[in-house]
Design a protein around this nucleic acid. Structure first.
Length: 205
DNA sequence: ATAATGATTCGCT
DNA sequence: GCGAATCATTATG
């Protein structure tokens, strides 16, 4: 099992990386509890031109500074005061690019994930959604900016064959209605016919 | 359908 | 510094 190296993340084309991340495997190991899950849904965010990106126009703040790091580290932040969202920083140092992981398919340590979520049965609700999949894997914002490329790291991502083109679907990103002309950019990728992909949420009336 | 929830940011001073 | 508005969501009825 090969861990993806910095070379994979540091490329300039974040959208391409987001696409290639589908099918890769996230492994977390906190407190000796090992869990892993297959990525089935991602979104690309790319400053400065992307209005939906926190670092739009390269705004550098305490929160977004992680995104300016070289590719291969985690960017984790709190959303709606409740949910920890997990991103992978991409691109060279100084480029605020990142890929949001939105949904995963549980592999190893399913009992651990169920316990963390307070569920007793394996169903998409366990990890189909950016907030809940972080919770299932035990990811918290305290792990912001840690490396993903260390073989012994708390969080790492294992390589896997790239899915056939026909299995990957591109669409507009979710939950960024405020981003005006950027809302329709097809920067969301997910695996076709996969029950672990998050459901498209209906917009407010 | 909507309440819950808190870090972050922005516009003041 | 301070306070208000904002938000890449989820769970529940």
């Amino acid at each position: 099992m090969t861990i993806l190296s910095a070379g994979f993340y540091c490329r300039e084309d974040t959208v391409q990386i987001a696409k290639e991340l589908i099918g890769k495997v996230i492994i977390t190991e906190f407190n000796g509890l090992l869990t892993s899950a297959r990525i089935v849904e991602t979104e690309a965010y790319k400053a400065p031109e992307d209005k939906a990106c926190h670092a739009y126009l390269n705004r550098k703040t305490k929160r977004t500074k992680t995104m300016f790091l070289p590719g291969g580290v985690a960017y984790i932040y709190l959303c709606y005061g409740i949910h920890h969202l997990f991103n992978v920083v991409t691109g060279p140092e100084g480029a605020a690019h990142a890929v949001l992981i939105r949904a995963v398919e549980p592999l190893a340590g399913q009992e651990i994930m169920l316990r963390r979520r307070g569920l007793d049965k394996l169903k998409p609700q366990l990890s189909a959604g950016p907030g809940v999949m972080s919770k299932a894997l035990g990811i918290e914002k305290a792990y912001d900016a840690i490396s993903l490329t260390e073989p012994k790291g708390l969080i790492r991502i294992a390589d896997a064959p790239v899915l056939p083109f026909s299995e990957i679907i591109a669409g507009p990103r979710v939950g960024i209605d405020y981003a005006e002309e950027c809302v329709d950019w097809p920067w969301r990728f997910y695996q076709r016919d996969c029950p672990w992909v998050s459901k498209i949420r209906k917009k407010k009336s």
